[in-house]
């Protein structure tokens, strides 16, 4: 690990991090604020008017408890997509950004092995996602406790967020792998954005039911099941395991590819 590089990345990312976090916070606070029995009745009516549309974003069965309410409105779309945007931008910047503009030459022309450089960047990516999700989790808990004391099932909520972190760990691993192995920034952006978005769309279409339902077993998002996580269902354990494995494999492969690859700098 190179701490100079880590510090540099921290300073260079703080702006993007804050923007993403601010948007997330805004939504989280408004969603928590919206939780009250009457309001959820209105939302239920809305769902009844266009069930397919709402189902696509995972908002089909609105529960009565606060945690079910949150998982429906936050963990079906917002907390999947916004961290994804953050990861894609960061993963591409951390490796391919330097290769594409040529400044990687200066980084690896210092007495640091390529492994050290790429490991630092991978660590930074994972740590950023972890901090982002920890902050939102903590904020949700605090805000819920202030507005609705003792309403939130904290254990279930933590499990849900651990699942979310593992999901994003796996996807960020994929993005990082693309960033390490592509030939230029454009290709890197295309693949690291295209595949997760495609998966998400398939998942959304699958949620709408009908003949497309089977499709969603082909996407990584099927390994993130909020209901099972909240219920601490035994199958959620192997789903977490699978996500962890995918993430680890991607990161390990990414590091290997970067250490071995030809660099035209």
């Amino acid at each position: 690990m190179n701490f100079t590089l880590l510090k540099h990345e921290m300073l260079a990312t703080v702006k993007l991090f804050c923007i993403i976090l601010a948007v997330l916070m805004l939504y989280i606070i408004s969603i928590v604020y919206m939780y009250n029995p009457e309001m959820s009745n209105t939302l239920k009516q809305l769902t009844a008017t266009m069930p397919e549309m709402m189902a696509a974003f995972g908002m089909s069965n609105i529960g009565d408890s606060l945690i079910e309410f949150l998982s429906t409105y936050l963990y079906g779309f917002l907390l999947l997509i916004l961290p994804l945007v953050f990861m894609i931008m960061l993963a591409n910047k951390l490796i391919m950004g330097y290769i594409d503009n040529g400044s990687m030459a200066y980084l690896i022309a210092t007495p640091n092995t390529r492994f050290k450089i790429v490991f630092t960047q991978a660590f930074f990516l994972v740590a950023s996602i972890f901090i982002l999700l920890s902050t939102t989790t903590l904020a949700t808990i605090i805000f819920s406790e202030i507005l609705f004391p003792n309403e939130l099932d904290i254990t279930a909520f933590l499990t849900l967020n651990i699942g979310l972190f593992f999901l994003h760990f796996a996807i960020s691993g994929y993005c990082f792998l693309v960033s390490c192995s592509s030939k230029d920034l454009r290709t890197s952006y295309a693949y690291s954005t295209g595949v997760p978005i495609l998966f998400y769309l398939i998942e959304a279409l699958g949620n709408m039911g009908g003949s497309l339902e089977k499709l969603q077993y082909f996407t990584i998002y099927s390994l993130f099941d909020p209901e099972k996580l909240m219920a601490q269902d035994s199958s959620s354990i192997w789903m977490l395991g699978a996500l962890f494995l995918i993430g680890m494999l991607c990161y390990m492969l990414a590091i290997r590819v970067f250490v071995k690859r030809d660099l035209y700098l």
Binding site: A12, Y98, N101, G102, S103, A105, Y106, I108, A109, T110, P111, N112, T113, R114, K116, L265
Partner: peptide, 21 residues
């Protein structure tokens, strides 16, 4: 031995590229 070599080497790349900002 890239890292070892870099300790006593100075390098000027042919392409002029730095970290923006």
């Amino acid at each position: 031995s890239t890292a070892e070599i870099q300790k006593f080497i100075g390098y000027l790349p042919g392409e002029i590229a730095f970290i923006d900002k």
